[in-house]
Amino acid sequence: MNTTEERLSQNRASLGKEFWLKTFSFLSPLFLLFLWEALAALKLVDVRLFSSPSRIFKTLIPLVLSGELIYHTLISTMRIALGFLAGAIPGVALGLSMGLFPSVRALLMPLVAVTFPIPKLAIMPLILIVFGLGESSKIFTIAIGVFYLVLINTMAGVLNIDPIYIDVAKSFKASRIQFYTTVAFPGALPMIFAGLKLGMGTALLLIVAAELSAAKAGVGWMIWRAYDMFDIERMFCSLIVLAFLGFVFSYLLDFLEKIVIPWKKR
């Protein structure tokens, strides 16, 4: 027999379990930092190569306070944001038209299929020659990486709409425009967002590479500069910023997705 008392105590037990799991998740990174610090203090890891949490923290504070880190973060954020938009907007537009019109798909699919596998880093020298050393080359590098992922996902989103929804629209005599706005676009939105999220990951990857060459600021530049100066602490500070940027951007996209796709079961 399960009395109310027993059930309540079971409930308490499972709540207690949840509490411990959350505590573990919180403690595990702290424990790693502690381990790292301890190994550095005991000289079991070489602090010239791997530094230590306290050293990194000591470098981080003045970097933040002087505004230097924030300056570089803002520059990189600007490039990522512009590149992301410059890639995502045409990616969605072209992906939708390729999904909707077989003629556009027939025309462009071979081009996309042939150029998509080229590593974006491999065309950076070409981009530098064409766009010069200014901002546009970095923005374009990011844009092209984002563009393909968004394009391919958007097109797949349109093509994979359940045929029954197309039948419903047809049976209600929807015009072409009505079909695009009430079925094709909303139906493709979940895949479009999947593309945007993948694109964001690629944008973070490309910003570091893009700032390697011919940049005078940015988080990626900081990393390469720290490499030249053999300044391991600065390098780690920049990595912390990149992790932070990735977290913020994916949080923003999740937030936007919740607003744009309230109908998705989560």
Partner: peptide, 16 residues
Amino acid sequence: PSTAVVFQGDSIFPWM
């Protein structure tokens, strides 16, 4: 409209 269809299975739009 001359006809309206009730389809077999799940055909209401999830996004509306």
